[in-house]
Structures are given as C-alpha cells and as structure tokens.
C-alpha cells in the first residue's frame, strides 16, 4: 500500500508539469495580451492611449519575451511558492487567492457533504422501494433538480429571500465581517450564510447522485449473494447495509476524484450571481482580462485538486474493496 501511494505521488509530478505547460500555452494562445486588453478598456473609456507607454508596460511585465521564457519565469517561481503577480489587481497572486481558495474549499466540502447526505438515503430508498409513490416522487424531484440550472435556482431563491424574508442572501459574510480578521463570530456568520449556496450548488449534484445510487443499488439487489445472505436469516436492513449498499458505494467513491474540481469550476456562474467571494468569479475575470499568472495559478491548483482527488478515491477504493487490495 505504502509503495503504491509513493509511486502514485511520483507519477503526479510529470503530469502536473505537463498540465502547467498546457495551461500556460492555452492562456497565451488567445489573441492579444493583458496590455492590449488594458488599452482596449482605456480606449473604451474615451482616453487616448500612447503606444510607447504600452510597450514600456509590456517590457515591465515581461510580456515582450517569448512565451517559453515567460513560462519559465512563472514556473520557477511556483516551485518556491511564488505564484507571480496579478496585473489586474497589482498584488501578488498568492495573497489574492489564499483566502478565496480556502473559502472555495469550505464551500465545496460542505456542498459535497450535503450532496452525499441527501443523495445516499434517498437513492437507497428509491432503489429498495422501486416503483413506489415515494420513488416516483423523488424521481420527479430529481429530474427537476437536474433540469433547473443552478443560476436560475439562485435567482429565484434570492428573490424569495428578499421579498419574503427581507434578508439579503448574497455573499458569504455579513457586511461587518466581510473584511474582518478570522474570529469565532466570523465563523458563525459564515455558517449562517453558507447553507444557501450549499443548497443551490448541491441540488443538481444530489439529483444526479440519487439516480446513480438508485441504479447502482438496483444492480446489486438482484445479485445471488444477496439471496445467499437472506437465506441465512439476516434482517432486511442488516442485509441491505452489509451487502448491496457497501458494494454500490464503490462507484460513488471512484467519482470523488472529479467531483472536487467540478464543484470548484461549476460554481463560477452561481458565485457570480450570489456574489460569493470564492475562486470562481476571480478566475473568470482573470481569464477575460488575460491576467496570465493569476489564471495560470488557479488552473494549476484546480488540476492538482483533480489529481489529488483521484488518488484519494483510489486509496479509499482499495480500502473498501478487497478485490482491488488483494488481487
């Protein structure tokens, strides 16, 4: 097991290097650069733009060099923990993304827990009581949850929040805590705001997981080993938990790898709508404004998250299923 983890960790290194090159190339492939975007913005605002000034900006930011040189400058910094400098924000990237990444992670993990705690019991219920009224009800709700886009749900919830409850549902903090340092009060404030985006973000995920769990479990319920266990005289509940659910969890665990990054990147639109201080909106702005180091840092972190998530799910899978562990 130890050897397996070490080998997988070693394999991650070249992969992430390749990803970083690809990411940087993709950012550079779009026509123009940060300076030309900046110039266009100035021109749109009616200001005259001096070509000489733009050239000097390019020289200052190193944008006049080849992309390979720029990549090397960036990646050699990343190796020692310096993610570069954001042109848009005039700040080091690491100070910009630090808290946002942490909040994103909190939001993602909460959403994941919400999704699982809703989807697992309902999925199990739907499979065991197949074609019952409850199953049809949850199937209907599930399809509605899948079909309604998250941002629409966010807008509706915001409208309801404002018009019925007279409370502002946007953001993750009340105004007095928005820029305050971390304290217990701030944590409590976060928790009281968190549930709305968690529900909005988790709905479609929970809906699809209900369907997956239902299908997985239906496959397992008719397996001969379930009959064997039933013929031993186990109660239906013990039977269910000990055999089919345990095995139906395997596909759940193996999807963990891509659920993590999906929650981060899938949340962009909803974060914009709900005005959440998470990574999504910042990434969007950075990409639009060709703020290359900021965008690169985000994408690199997302990919690392995917790779780590896959590793975690592989390890969990090996722990859950002796067939993978032993044979």
């Amino acid at each position: 097991m130890g050897r397996f983890i070490v080998r997988r960790l070693a394999g991650m290194v070249p992969f992430i290097i390749l990803v970083s090159i690809t990411v940087f190339m993709l950012i550079k492939l779009t026509p123009g650069d940060f300076v030309s975007n900046y110039a266009a913005a100035l021109a749109a605002a009616g200001e005259t733009v001096d070509d000489a000034m733009l050239d000097s900006m390019r020289a200052r930011y190193g944008l006049d060099q080849s992309w390979l040189v720029q990549y090397w400058d960036w990646i050699s910094g990343v190796m020692v923990g310096d993610f570069g400098y954001s042109f848009q924000w005039q700040q080091p990237v690491s100070s910009l993304i630090g808290e946002r990444m942490a909040l994103t992670l909190i939001l993602s993990v909460s959403t994941l827990l919400f999704t699982w705690s809703v989807a697992l019991p309902i999925g199990v219920y739907s499979a065991v009581r197949r074609y019952s009224i409850g199953d049809y009800f949850f199937t209907f709700v599930g399809f509605v949850g899948l079909a309604v886009p998250g941002f629409l749900l966010a807008l509706v919830l915001m409208y309801v929040g404002v018009s019925v409850f007279h409370s502002d549902v946007g953001g993750l903090f009340s105004s007095q805590y928005a820029d305050a340092p971390w304290s217990w009060g701030r944590v409590a404030d976060l928790a009281s705001h968190l549930w709305i985006p968690v529900i909005i973000l988790g709905t479609s995920g929970a809906a699809s997981l209900i369907r997956i769990m239902r299908a997985n479990l239906l496959d397992q319920l008719n397996q001969p080993y379930v009959d064997t266990a039933r013929a031993k005289g186990l109660s239906e509940f013990t039977l269910l938990v000990r055999y089919p659910i345990r095995i139906a969890l395997n596909p759940f665990v193996s999807t963990l790898g891509w659920i993590l990054p999906n929650l981060v990147s899938g949340a962009v639109i909803i974060s914009v709508v709900l005005n959440l201080p998470t990574a999504g909106p910042l990434l969007l702005q950075a990409l639009l404004g060709q703020d290359q180091y900021l965008a690169g840092a985000f994408l690199l972190l997302l990919c690392s998250l995917t790779v780590v998530g896959t590793l975690v799910s592989d390890i969990l899978l090996a722990l859950l299923d002796p067939r993978i562990r032993v044979s």
Partner: peptide
C-alpha cells in the same frame, strides 16, 4: 427458520458469495 432450520446452497459459487467479505 432461514439458515437455522432450513438452509440453502445456490448454484453459482462465483456470484453467490459476497466478493468483499
């Protein structure tokens, strides 16, 4: 009665045992 008084052996030894226990 199941298992204690009347026990059953099934056909497929490959699939009638739980693979993970």
């Amino acid at each position: 009665i199941r298992g204690r008084d009347i026990a059953m052996i099934f056909q497929e030894p490959m699939t009638s045992l739980s693979p993970i226990h």
